[in-house]
Simulated scan of single mutants.
Amino acid sequence: MREERWLKWGAGLVLFLVLAFQLFPIIWMVNTSLMTQLEAATGSLFPHEPQWNNYREIWRALPFFNYLKNSFLVCFSTTVVALAVATLAGYALGRFSFPGAELFGGSVLLTQVIPGILFLIPIYIMYIAVQNWVRQNLGLEVRLVGSYGGLIFTYTAFFVPISIWIMRGFFASIPKELEEAAMVDGATPFQAFYRVILPLARPGLAATAVYIFLTAWDELLFAQVLTTQDIATIPVGIRNFVGNFQNRYDLVMAAATVATLPVLFLFFFVQRQLIQGLTAGAVKG
């Protein structure tokens, strides 16, 4: 009993330390966002008086609404396209045996080993080359650099492989007998997939969608290179704000706090299905 008590206290202490370590940057960010410019620059621990005006100031100093709109548009579109592709591909890998299935599944996972930064320059050069070829040979003006489409296509290409792997594991954990029973009752394979498997896969779909959305929301490197000021996302806007107003750490932290709120609300809204999806998809694969 004494060993169990010490073990419980030790586990609780470790969890508390991990939680404090994770929450400290967020608390510091919110705390700094309420400071004056002088307090933030001199490293004060707490604001003498909360400066709620900082949150109004960022909307005046930055086109923040435009950044929010761009981020929502890019992240939502990427989530829809990548999730649709990953769902169909994950279902095929998790349900059917065909020549090259194992090789394809391993290749999908292998793509995540290569650092994304290595693709930045080749993708930029490729997009410019495609734009020039289409303009010269087809007489059409296609923009991949400096457009929503180019950024959405890039994000989709990066998020589809790991999303396929997540959905593959989840579909593999759903008993095949459910589909067989539906087809015995007269359903076609597509109807069995749409009416039986997809509702059961809702937690996995939610987990994958949240992963895609959050990763796209936080991405800076490709967004910095492939966007212009008009279609800049929130990370790019905050990065440019740091470059233009290096001493306004109070406003930078206020902008970062506002940028955190949408994904925070999204996480709390789907947290139950997110946890179910992450655990159920790990049953077997």
Rank of each mutant, 00 (worst) to 15 (best):
residue 1 M to E: 11
residue 3 E to T: 14
residue 5 R to H: 08
residue 12 G to N: 12
residue 21 F to P: 00
residue 24 F to H: 11
residue 26 I to S: 06
residue 28 W to P: 00
residue 30 V to G: 09
residue 33 S to C: 03
residue 34 L to P: 05
residue 41 A to R: 14
residue 52 W to E: 03
residue 55 Y to H: 04
residue 57 E to H: 01
residue 59 W to P: 00
residue 62 L to D: 04
residue 66 N to G: 10
residue 67 Y to K: 01
residue 68 L to S: 07
residue 69 K to D: 01
residue 79 T to P: 02
residue 80 V to T: 11
residue 80 V to Y: 02
residue 83 L to Q: 05
residue 83 L to T: 11
residue 90 G to S: 11
residue 91 Y to D: 01
residue 92 A to F: 10
residue 111 T to A: 11
residue 116 G to M: 05
residue 120 L to T: 11
residue 128 I to D: 11
residue 129 A to E: 13
residue 144 L to N: 08
residue 147 S to F: 12
residue 151 L to Y: 03
residue 155 Y to L: 01
residue 161 P to I: 02
residue 168 R to H: 12
residue 171 F to G: 06
residue 177 E to W: 03
residue 181 A to P: 02
residue 188 T to G: 12
residue 192 A to F: 06
residue 196 V to C: 04
residue 197 I to T: 14
residue 197 I to Q: 05
residue 198 L to F: 08
residue 202 R to C: 03
residue 203 P to H: 02
residue 204 G to K: 09
residue 204 G to V: 06
residue 206 A to Y: 08
residue 207 A to E: 05
residue 209 A to N: 07
residue 217 W to E: 01
residue 223 A to S: 13
residue 224 Q to F: 12
residue 225 V to Q: 10
residue 227 T to F: 02
residue 230 D to V: 13
residue 233 T to D: 06
residue 234 I to A: 05
residue 234 I to D: 01
residue 245 F to Y: 15
residue 246 Q to W: 14
residue 246 Q to H: 09
residue 248 R to T: 04
residue 248 R to Y: 03
residue 253 M to Q: 13
residue 257 T to Y: 00
residue 258 V to A: 10
residue 261 L to M: 13
residue 280 A to N: 12
residue 283 V to K: 03
